[in-house]
Write a protein that binds this DNA or RNA. Structure first.
Lengths: 119, 119
DNA sequence: CTGAATCCTTGTAGATACTG
DNA sequence: CAGTATCTACAAGGATTCAG
């Protein structure tokens, strides 16, 4: 995600995609626990969530806090850096909302005849 | 890229990433021919460029125009939809420039001791 | 020049089951 | 509850070669 601009000297920010953005959004309003994150994100397996969180943690986007011991209680929260990422993310979301339909139409048009030159 | 927001009803805009963004940027100022796109993007093989362009074309982000026949002359250009995508892209680039260093520091900090809690 | 075809390698996701 | 451990599957990237 946001693999650092599309320029020659791009900073490799790649974190894995597909789930990371959604995880960040889930953390937007409040810190969440492991399974709190899983619930809304159906189809996200613990393995992948674990990997994604570790990646986000490694890059300084989320913090991991362990409370007590029995039963385990771990909370994930956005760091200021992670929070700053929400802005470009929101812009991307806005684009998606604005142009999503156009996109669908473009694809339909392509399927209809763009490829196998109807002629 | 921009797999359509991080929300439940996300529109799958995924085009493959890694190269697509850079290709779009290369087309920003003017239409380009196949090998004109390859030159600045070292390490981009014809196969991948071809696949990426087809994906972009399918989604209505770029147009493909064939001129004459011998020798082959094909130009790729941004469509209005593709051009609209430059905005969120620019925001992501800006983020990268602003926070790239922070990111590097966060990673260094993590490697240094974030993992095995130095307490 | 513009690409298509083929083969190979790798990375990441998903399924499933298990542990502290 | 919060993960880890395996294993499989598939997609994407890369290298190379060939063709119109």
């Amino acid at each position: 995600m946001f693999d650092g601009c599309a320029e020659p000297t791009s900073i490799p920010v790649r974190v894995g995609d597909k789930w990371t953005a959604q995880i960040l959004v889930c953390l937007k309003d409040a810190p969440r626990r492991f399974n709190e994150l899983r619930r809304p994100l159906k189809r996200l397996t613990p393995k992948v969530l674990s990997e994604s969180l570790r990646s986000l943690e490694r890059n300084g986007f989320v913090s991991r806090t362990v409370y007590g011991e029995q039963p385990p209680h771990v909370e994930y929260a956005l760091t200021p850096l992670g929070r700053s990422l929400l802005e470009p993310l929101a812009v991307a979301c806005a684009w998606s909302r604005e142009h999503g339909e156009e996109l669908t139409r473009a694809r339909a048009a392509y399927e209809a005849g763009g490829r196998t030159a109807p002629e």
